[in-house]
Amino acid sequence: MRISIENRLTGRVYDVEIDPGHTAKDVIDMLIEEGYIPATPFTDYYWVLVDPRGIMIDENEALATRVREGEKLSLVAVFTPG
């Protein structure tokens, strides 16, 4: 299944092919391993995927349950120092 992922920090959009069992963590790890995004956005920040309806996806949840072919997810950096 083809989906898009928009990095809300940079505005870049990644088109990704996923299998039904792939989780949010799998996709984030892939983007990190391929060098598209750093391991953490910044110190004390973490990557989070958000579905097209604006609801966060748990890192262990299979993406196929939350996204349909051609839809776009958002990649967000959260938890920051104050």
Binding site: R8, G54, I55, M56, V76, V78
Partner: peptide, 20 residues
């Protein structure tokens, strides 16, 4: 909900955080 801002890009974004 979490509201994220990026003032370098002028981007505001809100999403819901479900209970884990």
């Amino acid at each position: 909900k979490r509201l994220c801002i990026d003032l370098s890009r002028g981007d505001w974004y809100v999403y819901e955080v479900p209970k884990n």
